[in-house]
């Protein structure tokens, strides 16, 4: 931050404030490092892994298989996945199928409003590369074009078991990740 300043001020109060900022910054660095050590990180990641709440946004027809996966037989809640209405308390976007240009704007808006850490699963061929509708005039060919995707689940539509596998893969990724993501 100080590099962007044009010149050092002569005012002693400002100088003091600057040095305080540096000190506070260093302190937070130290706290981050302490929290990111093995035992504390494991506990935090364990909590994050098993409370992945997807936000209530359905983009297209894979929602039928997402519904089947949430229902009886493939109960997704045993992985800690509970579809939830409020996006500010959610951690996960499951992009269920084709993303139209109209929906892409809303998806990006939803992603930006969610709290960090947030994860994205692209479910279905359409969300990966356009799939069946790759030559349509009204769709976006893949979620990676405007969102950072963590896990891709292929299939048209993927079976509920495939979605479960994707969620387990995401949990593995969270287990090995840092507490404070760079983004």
């Amino acid at each position: 931050m100080s590099a962007q300043k044009p010149a050092q001020s002569d005012d002693p109060i400002e100088l003091l404030a600057d040095s305080m900022n540096v000190w506070v910054g260093k302190l937070s660095d130290i706290v981050h490092k302490v929290i990111d050590t093995e035992p504390i990180r494991n506990v935090i990641n364990w909590a994050r892994m098993y409370s992945l709440w997807p936000v209530n946004i359905t983009t297209a027809c894979c929602s039928a298989e997402f519904g089947a996966a949430s229902g009886a037989r493939h109960d997704l809640e045993r992985f800690g996945v509970l579809p939830y209405g409020s996006l500010r308390q959610s951690d996960l976007i499951v992009i269920e199928g084709t993303i139209t240009k109209k929906m892409a704007k809303r998806l990006r808006m939803i992603y930006d409003q969610m709290a960090i850490p947030r994860y994205v699963i692209a479910m279905g061929d359409c969300a990966i590369s356009g799939g069946l509708f790759h030559d349509s005039y009204s769709i976006v060919n893949g979620a990676h074009e405007f969102l950072p995707v963590d896990v891709f689940v292929p299939g048209c539509p993927p079976r509920p078991e495939a979605l479960e596998h994707g969620i387990i893969m995401l949990q593995e990724k969270i287990r090995n990740s840092k507490v404070y993501p760079q983004s």
């Binding site: 109209k102 069946l132 509708f133 349509s136």
Partner: peptide, 24 residues
């Protein structure tokens, strides 16, 4: 929000390849 232009797509594929698109 889910308009995918299916009527246009089925003009571009042959009738058997259109079947999955019709179902979606």
């Amino acid at each position: 929000y889910v308009h995918r232009g299916i009527e246009k797509i089925i003009e571009l594929r042959n009738i058997i390849r259109s079947i999955p698109v019709i179902e979606r």
